[in-house]
């Protein structure tokens, strides 16, 4: 088993599949009345969150607690972090506290890589800057697999602000490792340079959502921040929504079986219409539930053994 989960690139196909299979068992166990499993009793998991993300933190916290780990939440607000303590000093503190794993969320890309130099325990990336969010990609893959029965050969369109999206980077890496075919869709300003060479040669790029939809098994809508308008990535929310938003009309272009995903939080009316988000094709609520099972699997596989 790997020691850290810093990037979806840390996972080969066998390891990624093991995580998804383990998550499926975890999901079955979590469904029952008593949700605590003893596997990580005596282990300490620290949630080190430099960015507000209640959803992700709660998901990791629930996952660790269901495996009976001790959980310490270390958030940037109201701690020494806001007093200017460096990541290294914080890492040494966590090390002294005996953290077996540190789940880190940080606004700086690569912060988990830096942290891994300073702690002995496992480092799990819970989102770093505009780099990656590997457990989100795992829960997305899990959701696709449980809805559509497979990942190999699946056609996945990832739509929106790929340039600034850690979810997109991790998904491209993981999905292509597992045999899916990813097409990135968005205005050229929001598709990063050399993206296929950077992430996977199999990745395709399109600027035309309508052309991609009829041949997609999955369409994943990314959150688009309206601040991007000020930076001239696109002229207006209205134009963005017209060209790249998923409304009911566009959703009808999808094949019958296709699903609609969104990592949340959504801008309803911007990248996704409310009726689409609430439609039976949407997996948005499932994604949240699957997040706990996938994170249980990751924590168990990183910390469960010797």
């Amino acid at each position: 088993m790997i020691k850290h989960l810093r990037s979806a690139a840390d996972l080969d196909a066998a390891t990624a599949t093991l995580i998804l299979d383990t998550a499926a068992e975890m999901a079955a166990l979590s469904g029952r009345e008593v949700k605590k499993l003893p596997a990580l009793r005596g282990r300490t998991v620290v949630n080190l969150f430099y960015e507000d993300s209640t959803r992700t933190r709660i998901s990791f916290e629930a996952a660790a607690k269901r495996l009976s780990a001790d959980v310490i939440n270390f958030s940037a607000k109201g701690s020494s972090v806001s007093k200017g303590e460096s990541l290294k000093d914080t890492a040494l503190t966590l090390q002294a506290m005996g953290a077996d794993a540190v789940v880190i969320r940080h606004s700086a890309s690569g912060a988990p890589h830096r942290l891994a130099n300073w702690v002995d325990g496992s480092v799990v990336n819970a989102g770093d800057g505009t780099h990656e969010h590997p457990t989100q990609a795992l829960l997305d893959a899990y959701t696709m697999r449980s809805r559509l029965g497979r990942l190999d050969g699946l056609k996945v369109a990832i739509v929106g602000d790929v340039l600034h999206s850690r979810v997109a980077r991790s998904n491209v890496l993981l999905l292509t490792t597992l045999g899916a075919q990813v097409t990135l869709v968005g205005p050229p300003t929001l598709i990063p340079l050399d993206v296929a060479a950077a992430l996977s040669e199999k990745t395709q790029v399109s600027y035309d959502l309508d052309a991609v939809l009829p041949d997609s098994d999955v369409v994943m809508m990314l959150r688009v921040q309206t601040e991007r308008m000020q930076d001239s990535y696109f002229p207006s929310a209205r134009e963005y929504s017209r060209r790249y938003g998923l409304d009911m009309l566009r959703m009808r272009k999808l094949p019958e079986h296709a699903i609609v995903m969104h990592p949340g939080p959504m801008n309803r009316g911007m990248e996704i219409a409310p009726e689409v988000a609430d439609s039976p094709r949407s997996t948005i609520v499932e994604q949240v539930a699957n997040g706990v099972s996938v994170r249980m699997a990751v924590l168990y596989l990183l910390l469960g053994g010797k």
């Binding site: 088993m1 093991l18 079955a28 166990l29 499993l37 596997a39 596989l301 469960g304």
Partner: peptide, 22 residues
């Protein structure tokens, strides 16, 4: 009934894959 998560020797060996509980 998979017992992996309840074993008392989990930490003595590399992480084990889970079996099915049904």
């Amino acid at each position: 009934l998979d017992i992996t998560l309840y074993r008392d020797d989990l930490r003595l060996k590399a992480t084990r894959a889970l079996g099915k509980t049904e």
